[in-house]
């Protein structure tokens, strides 16, 4: 990456970029706890459609979000190539199921842009900022919005 010489620059944030449903997304690397291969999830009854279920992450129960389903993107078949990004969000830890992890980017803060208001598709509400890297648009995921509502009871 040509733009990443100033990795340690204090005014830049580091992003983990990944592909999901054929699009480029990223999350703040500070919220990423680990990246691991896919595992068979135990499905949860009455869970929202985008909750794959729960897996065993070294003894803890980790809910898995199928991110492409969550973002309303076309869902490919589950494949062994799927990757789970384990993210921490305050008290909660969840796994995001994505197609593949791409890179770690350091983006100067001033190059981050708010998402335009025009977009009307579902995915828009899950994007907190945008940036361009090597001519590609990288969406920064709003983790808070992606989380399943907690304590929700779906009868």
């Amino acid at each position: 990456m040509t733009d990443n010489d100033k990795l340690t620059s204090s005014s830049s944030i580091e992003l983990l970029s990944f592909r999901v449903g054929g699009q480029d997304y990223s999350v703040d690397i500070m919220s990423v706890r680990e990246i691991r291969g896919s595992a068979k999830a135990t499905s949860l009854p009455h869970a929202p459609f985008f909750v794959k279920g729960v897996i065993n992450l070294r003894g803890t129960v980790l809910p898995i979000i199928d991110l492409s389903a969550r973002l309303g993107l076309q869902t490919g078949e589950d494949s062994e190539r799927n990757v789970i990004i384990v993210v921490d969000l305050g008290e909660r830890t969840v796994g995001l199921m994505v197609d593949a992890v791409s890179d770690i980017l350091a983006i100067p803060s001033e190059e981050m842009q708010p998402p335009p208001d025009l977009a009307a598709d579902d995915a828009r509400t899950f994007v907190s900022a945008l940036t361009i890297v090597d001519g590609r648009m990288i969406r920064i995921l709003d983790l808070e919005a992606v989380m399943p509502p907690q304590g929700e009871e779906v009868a």
């Binding site: 949860l44 009854p45 009455h46 869970a47 129960v61 909660r92 830890t93 304590g151 779906v154």
Partner: peptide, 17 residues
């Protein structure tokens, strides 16, 4: 017993994992 409430939330009909 592994609680679900902490990581996911309550699931109807399910006590824990």
């Amino acid at each position: 017993i592994k609680g679900l409430e902490g990581s996911y939330g309550r699931v109807p009909g399910i006590a824990a994992a």
